[in-house]
Amino acid sequence: MDTGVKRAFRFRFYPTPAQADLLNRTFGSVRLVYNMALQARTEAWRDRQERVNYTATSAMLTAWKKTGELAFLNEVSCVPLQQCLRHLQNGFTAFWEKRARYPRFKSKRKSRASAEFTASAFTYKNGRLTLAKMAEPLDVVWSRPLPEGTAPSRVTVTRDSAGRWYVSLLCDDTVEALPPTGTTVGADAGLHHLIVLSTGEKIDNPRHERADRTRLARAQRALSRKEKGSRNRDKARLKVARVHARIADRRRDHLHKLTTRLVRENCEYGGVLLRAVV
């Protein structure tokens, strides 16, 4: 039986210098607004035992934009700023319900650079995606088609530590049930192998980091010699991040191919059944 779901499709894109500048300023504004709202909510609870909700932080954002020192917030789309306040509200809701830890401040170095745009802040037509405040569409590498007859409802733009740009489009999609094979398989994570299947098959661990161990060590030594705060250190840090990204990409690709094969070969009664051997 087919099932309707919300599914995100991720693509790489290459922004122009003007687009990259606008997106970088958007990332910084999102991080700043999130941290300021978190600080305000923390102080309200600590000083007055008052719970500040999303509506109150949204009003704060409007007031911040009218001040001279934060007027630059008007230069980016307001939608990602509102979205980060909604995410903060979700974080507090999860904390109050004891499902998560207390929300933490976003760091420029450690936090992912991202901005979320709802349907009012982008246009998608004939395979061309244009974000708010941009005059030209993004140069997206459409590596696979979006579901036919649907349009994205939300767009998330990210920049990873290696300096690569990605856009994720949330669309309605239909998941088709796999044909039943009548077979199941047990999987055991091994010490000398990645996994050992109940069929007797042993899948080796590719150990992708070994192929780039020399390159990573050389890049890390070069980084350690650079002066903190210098542009050369930023360049060296980017080289280290790119080596890590290469290792992570190869590992992720291998795992995706492996799990896809196991799911397609062991689909019992039209549903997937994998048994972990403990």
Rank of each mutant, 00 (worst) to 15 (best):
D2T: 11
T3I: 14
T3P: 05
G4N: 10
K6A: 12
R12N: 09
F13N: 13
P17G: 08
A18I: 00
A18H: 09
D21I: 12
L23N: 02
S29N: 02
T55C: 05
A59L: 01
A59R: 04
A59M: 05
T62S: 13
A63N: 09
K66R: 07
L81S: 02
Q82V: 10
H87A: 07
F92M: 07
F95E: 10
W96P: 04
P103E: 06
R109S: 11
A119D: 06
K125P: 00
N126G: 03
G127D: 08
T130E: 01
L131Q: 02
L131N: 05
K133A: 12
P137S: 14
W142Y: 05
P145S: 05
T156M: 09
Y166A: 08
Y166Q: 14
L169A: 05
D173W: 06
T174C: 12
V175H: 09
T181I: 06
T181W: 07
D188E: 14
T199R: 05
D204W: 04
R210M: 11
Q220M: 07
A222L: 04
R225S: 15
D234C: 03
D234T: 15
A245F: 03
A245K: 04
R246D: 08
A248E: 08
D249I: 08
R250T: 14
R251T: 13
D253M: 10
R264D: 15
N266I: 13
R275Y: 09
